[in-house]
Design a protein around this nucleic acid. Sequence first.
DNA 1: CATGAATGAGGGTTCATTCAT
DNA 2: TATGAATGAACCCTCATTCAT
Lengths: 207, 207, 207, 207
Amino acid sequence: MKDNKVLSSVKDEELIRKRRDQMIKGALTLFKEKGFHRTTTREIAKESGFSIGTLYEYIRTKEDVLYLVCDSIHGEVKKRLEVVVERNQASTENLGNVITSFFHLMDEMQEEILILYQEVKSLSKETRSAILQKEREMATMLEKAITASLPNALPKQDITLLANNIMIQGHMWGFRRWMLQKEFTLEQYIQKQLQFAFSALRINKVK
Amino acid sequence: MKDNKVLSSVKDEELIRKRRDQMIKGALTLFKEKGFHRTTTREIAKESGFSIGTLYEYIRTKEDVLYLVCDSIHGEVKKRLEVVVERNQASTENLGNVITSFFHLMDEMQEEILILYQEVKSLSKETRSAILQKEREMATMLEKAITASLPNALPKQDITLLANNIMIQGHMWGFRRWMLQKEFTLEQYIQKQLQFAFSALRINKVK
Amino acid sequence: MKDNKVLSSVKDEELIRKRRDQMIKGALTLFKEKGFHRTTTREIAKESGFSIGTLYEYIRTKEDVLYLVCDSIHGEVKKRLEVVVERNQASTENLGNVITSFFHLMDEMQEEILILYQEVKSLSKETRSAILQKEREMATMLEKAITASLPNALPKQDITLLANNIMIQGHMWGFRRWMLQKEFTLEQYIQKQLQFAFSALRINKVK
Amino acid sequence: MKDNKVLSSVKDEELIRKRRDQMIKGALTLFKEKGFHRTTTREIAKESGFSIGTLYEYIRTKEDVLYLVCDSIHGEVKKRLEVVVERNQASTENLGNVITSFFHLMDEMQEEILILYQEVKSLSKETRSAILQKEREMATMLEKAITASLPNALPKQDITLLANNIMIQGHMWGFRRWMLQKEFTLEQYIQKQLQFAFSALRINKVK
DNA sequence: CATGAATGAGGGTTCATTCAT
DNA sequence: TATGAATGAACCCTCATTCAT
């Protein structure tokens, strides 16, 4: 269950969910602006719409907030990725669709992805590995979508790597925006990367 | 000239160079361990082998240390990349060599690259763009090496993107090590990525 | 309203008043002893009876404390001066009473006056002029008392100057105590200065 | 002998005099600008035209600089006051001249006088009393000039007080300039104060 | 004598966290 | 449950003073 890692002294589960949603929303806004370290707990409380005392009723340390935020980002990505994957039946054309949708998703979540890249290291070892686990699940989802879309089998390693490449190409669009978004529109970027991906698969030969 | 952005109250240029090298070395060690924000200036001074007072003879703010460290990392990458590029004459085989060497370089500098990804955001706007400029130069170097190694011309955008892809695939080896280095040895990783890269090139060639 | 220049992160106005009173009392004691610059914020907090963290809940900078202290001194002087002035109806004899009371007041507030002379310069330009404004008001009060006590009109400049002279003669009793208080008792001092003042007035009358 | 309170590790007396003159000049400039506490020893050294190391060859602590500056101010005042006093023979008219010249002197040395008022408290007890002794000498000089100028004897206390009054009226012209110099020209101020002073004398005469 | 690099105690200020109300 | 005042460890940075060259 989501959030079960973070202890709260409040009993009402429904309330916990509500308050944490406020909290995540507020903290996310601030983290995007100034990063985790430069954001104070007071600011988080204020942005979330309650007092510092209340904040600490729902978390135990500032790091908990970061965990909740990272976890929430992953949750969001996963949720939307699932929709994408499930909407597309297994077929080569649909691989293109999946990847395209994924890139669009990454475009929309640029800043969230950035936070993951920059702040996960501030989590404690245990919490960090919980987050990295989510990352792995994401890669696995992409892998599955690719496998399902391929006409014939490919070595597992090839697929793993391809999924990884595509994933970070999606991330790259965001965290290297100062470089890429000057030279490409999103559509151009997607098209080129698809071309590269397909040529790797040798699918293009056929085409 | 390197480091000319950071003011020092010491006049002896030679000494400045020496002390800053100590400083960068010390700070780098600590940043790898605990990140910029969790490292204190006193720790940096101690790790560098001098007192807090002396540290501040060579910089003005803690951020200056981060700048010097980032700048130094880029300097190191550039220096070593230049050697690699110059050693290889233009030819398709040598493109392989260049990329291979680049991946090896990224493997050796994993932790430094991580710092760039995670801490550059802590620099002030001004300083940050100075660092991003270095990043751009690096990409350009890779682009040139690729162009030089290709038998026939490719659209500029293709090369730019290819260079970017290869660059972050190099970075990814480090910052997604928890994922990749469990499934691939460095050599396997390089070989697969080369395969992908070459297939991308071949397709384009034909086209 | 008093103190409205200094921001506090505490909301309870009553509490702010209470804590600031503690603070002003504590700081005043220390400033008398060692001056503003030689007093640390930690010492102020301790002397005020709370922690350094709490101190900073009620001010933003150390300079704020100085402002509050100076402002409070002026407030005290003004309050007591008003009582004096109002107690005496307009008449020449009562001018003597007013001046006498003023000198007594200055005797009692010697050390506070010294602080004004020595530390106001440490205030920022803005804040300093707010304090000097209070100084002006004080002079004006004296002027009015004098004017009201005079049987016939005098040139405005004469009154202004006389008021100034009396005011600094009151201050002088404190900040030149090492000189004056060896040669005069307070009563002697007052009597002599009154004599001088009245002779100045008589002369002008005749003229 | 001047300066004999402050130890120097340099032997050459001539050099000591020269360096200290540079030092006093430099420090005075800075103290006028920002006060003693806000001025650093490094700044003093720089403004004086030599290194921080050299500065410490001629003094032992920062406080020594303040002492030298205060002492030098008193020396300057005394020197110029002596000229004034000696130039005027004993006579009531000349009393006017002496006072007028004194006010002019205070006008020219406004900022130096301010430093005395504000910074003497930062001297150690011993040093401070040495400076206050100078202050007393100054008052005595004025007293003598007054006594010499009077046609017939006055009680000592009256003269002491009159001298003190005139002295601080001179000071006041400087440190209450924000008040007085808006309402009076120097000449007006002098004339009014003379008028007051003479009326005081006449009254006493009669008595 | 002159220099300026080195030192580190100490200062002002912040902020995560607690707890009485 | 919610509040926000209170706490104090810890941070960044300064600057008077020393001492080797």
